[in-house]
Design a protein around this nucleic acid. Sequence first.
DNA 1: TATGAATGAGCGTTCATTCAT
DNA 2: TATGAATGAACGCTCATTCAT
Lengths: 191, 191, 191, 191
Amino acid sequence: MGRATQQRKLRTREQLLAAAHAIIVSDGYEALRVEDVVVNASVAKGTFFSHFKDKDALMDILIGRKIDALLDELEKVSSFKTVEELVENSMPLLNFISSERYIFDVFLRLSGALAVEDIGDIATTLYRHDRLLATQLSNSSFRQDISVDLLSEGVQSFSINAVALSFCALHSGQDLKDRLTVYLKAWLCPG
Amino acid sequence: MGRATQQRKLRTREQLLAAAHAIIVSDGYEALRVEDVVVNASVAKGTFFSHFKDKDALMDILIGRKIDALLDELEKVSSFKTVEELVENSMPLLNFISSERYIFDVFLRLSGALAVEDIGDIATTLYRHDRLLATQLSNSSFRQDISVDLLSEGVQSFSINAVALSFCALHSGQDLKDRLTVYLKAWLCPG
Amino acid sequence: MGRATQQRKLRTREQLLAAAHAIIVSDGYEALRVEDVVVNASVAKGTFFSHFKDKDALMDILIGRKIDALLDELEKVSSFKTVEELVENSMPLLNFISSERYIFDVFLRLSGALAVEDIGDIATTLYRHDRLLATQLSNSSFRQDISVDLLSEGVQSFSINAVALSFCALHSGQDLKDRLTVYLKAWLCPG
Amino acid sequence: MGRATQQRKLRTREQLLAAAHAIIVSDGYEALRVEDVVVNASVAKGTFFSHFKDKDALMDILIGRKIDALLDELEKVSSFKTVEELVENSMPLLNFISSERYIFDVFLRLSGALAVEDIGDIATTLYRHDRLLATQLSNSSFRQDISVDLLSEGVQSFSINAVALSFCALHSGQDLKDRLTVYLKAWLCPG
DNA sequence: TATGAATGAGCGTTCATTCAT
DNA sequence: TATGAATGAACGCTCATTCAT
């Protein structure tokens, strides 16, 4: 593949990603249609599939990019002094996940794939999240009777549960935070 | 509405449910087609939609019934002496939920609706599950520093997480059980 | 059938007609659904069909009533001095017919049935229209070289054509009148 | 769009039209089912709707083609010496229009759209009919006191009326012709 | 690599009408 | 007479994905 061809390919790919991003910003992830993406990118339908394995692959990249940006922020904190601090720092990510059912489903679907490398970019991102959380918890002084990995899995379990409950019309955004705080206090500082 | 007419409607409804149940037993939930249901029930397609809002509504009822049956079993136990006993008794339900991605999705979607009456039968069922678990935990002697409701929500969080992980090809059924045991020991008997 | 029963039947019938009329007034003929009629009349679906052969029968009555009222007005004129006068007097009826495609279709469908008695109320009404027009024309002094019946059929042909053209978005209500005037001058006063 | 692709699309379109035509020839327009068309054309259902907006759009094309063929015949005549000749030459088209209620309805619905280009092929065809008739009449020597366009519209009005009446069970095909002859003599040769 | 026509299974809907009670 | 559950044949549509050029 010549240099020019390579550049063209890259440009097309970015056009597709940009078009998809624009749609998501205005209409949400759920509403994204391959048809619209290719039209907005001024590219043929088939071209889409020569750049991305399938629609999910595109979604993973888009969601992965977003989460990566959020993790960049989260990474600035090396440890948590209190549960409140942990919750506070988790909110941007959780708010994103709870912003749309579609995102939550992707997240949940792939969070079971933590240790699997070949699933794609988003799995890497989620793995990064898992490791980051474990590291931060190991630098913090919560309960010491269980492994950091277990501690981390617990935090994730409660986070997911809190987000799931937030999809019920009765639970507002504030609820998510309060609920998670209660959960994590009981989990991280028992007794 | 005359008594006879009422009975007729009920009968048709049961025919529909029975036909759907038969399909699910042999081919799974995912494979259920409205077309097949009405043919097997010897009923017109229009009739289906006068009984159920859409296919999902039927699915909810079917899944709800199945869970109800499992809860009937679970209800025979009034308390758990050990985490192992709790896990052991939870397995039938968890195995069902993890038996098909479709079921898990329905379960997760509706488990956010606890205590909401107007969502339909399955919400009632999930509420029943929540209450049953809380009662059983209150009769058991696990950690006493937090409310029974919180204890119950934690159990559910970990259960869902364990099931979610079980959908990753790497984790087998045995894993689900072991993983949950580890989780719940850390949750129910900290320190 | 007892007197009381008879009265009840009549009352139900009027309830149905009233309910239908209300729907038509607010949503038009096209939008009328048997379902809505029976609900508004607080009557069962089947009852509708014991009062009217089918939905069309109801429509015919409703449209027939409306046309009859218009003919009552038209009847006050015994002859036309000019084409303009004929057109002017025809407009209420033509405006009604052109007010909705549905009405036009019914009108056209049944206007072929002029001499047939057993088609229903509306046929009688259309027959009345035909006779009325013929009488009025015979009292007028338009071309005398052809029979009054033929003269009348021509007027009706042109009227229908003018209404048909009015359904094209390009032709407004005023057009209908102007167009018809040109037609009828050429038809009624040739040479 | 590549030449080959373009040809392929055209070929598919013709397959669809051919399949539909075959059905119509054997069973009539009324009996045409989209399902049957796609099966006979060995094409997916989705393909149908990417070629035609809906079933009606296909019907319009088919009816338009048929009328076009009839107009090709009619075009061979440049003028009419007598009303009988005009009627005689009009019969193929009128017989087609009166052969099925469905066709008449389409014809009537669209004949209001004369001179409107964007309605579709059939409108173009009807426009062609209108122009052809006007030209033929202008070459003939019927009444000269009115414009050729008006003369033509009158012929069409009477034709439509004659066809409409032919749908009444009482009027046979012969009637249509006779009736039209009477109408047109009075219209074209008054006095 | 790019193109875009074609795929295809199934859902939800419509709604006048019938018929057993 | 009144009831209302049941009928049933299409239609339109969805939309990610494939494949021949």
